[in-house]
Design a protein around this nucleic acid. Structure first.
Lengths: 124, 124
DNA sequence: TTAACAATTAAACATTTATTTAATTGTTTA
DNA sequence: TAAACAATTAAATAAATGTTTAATTGTTAA
């Protein structure tokens, strides 16, 4: 084995040290988790997993200003977690229907042990 | 229905607006995601999902200083994602064997599309 | 009991980020 | 076209966070 740690102690690290993904690889995952680190943003994401809503309504539910909501929506969208759709004057947002979103939704429900109001199969 | 959003547009939000978990509830989940938002910390977590390692070795692999590693380990531990075990002079860390850790590990593997070196059943 | 090593803690600094207020863009209807 | 409404963007501020250097605690071996 060509790679060796300072303290070789019979563990397995030397067996896969050269298979560890790079900093950049983990940066991609971290970018997703980063969007869910803020309680307000996470709550918005959860809501959009269960309903399609416009910015004003989200602000009303969240008791937040319009620009603050817009800020969070932009971040969630940049991570491909939600999509937007303008209908007249309003812009409607909802969660993307992707495996990742479903997985993240499941994690949320598990951690919260929420009874998902419509059952997980109703995620948007 | 007693609760109504500013723009009632025939969506489902009014049906579960009073079932939306609180800010504090989402704070609990966010606290977990928060620990995985930093690429370095996430990478450390991934390593500890596959091997039990001491602080010095983690620093060697990560090319990070000892205090920096210690800082990240403390945060991961405070979120119950890793455990520590002192053996002589060294303190060994590894991922907790909990459903949440397995779930987060799966998310990471899926996003990265890594071939888990030992298969997911070998997670520590 | 010293000396050496491993790990943590503390203080300081630089960077990032969430929110507010104000201004701007986009869309509808009067 | 003008007025009203919805949403976004910009600038500014306050708060949180990662890393470094230095000091401290804990453990082992000489």
């Amino acid at each position: 084995m060509s790679v060796s740690t300072p303290h070789t102690h019979g563990q397995t690290i030397e067996n896969f040290i050269d298979k560890i993904p790079s900093f950049d690889d983990f940066g991609k995952i971290a970018a997703i988790f980063k969007q869910l680190e803020d309680p307000n943003r996470l709550r918005i994401f959860w809501i959009l997993c269960h309903s399609e809503e416009c910015v004003t309504n989200i602000g009303y539910i969240m008791k937040m200003s319009n620009p603050a909501v817009s800020h969070h929506l932009r971040l969630l969208k940049s991570a491909d977690l939600i999509t937007s759709d303008r209908k007249g004057k309003e812009v409607y947002y909802k969660a993307c229907n992707t495996p990742l979103v479903h997985q993240l939704h499941d994690v949320m429900e598990d951690v919260l042990r929420i009874a998902c109001p419509f059952g997980n199969e109703h995620i948007l």
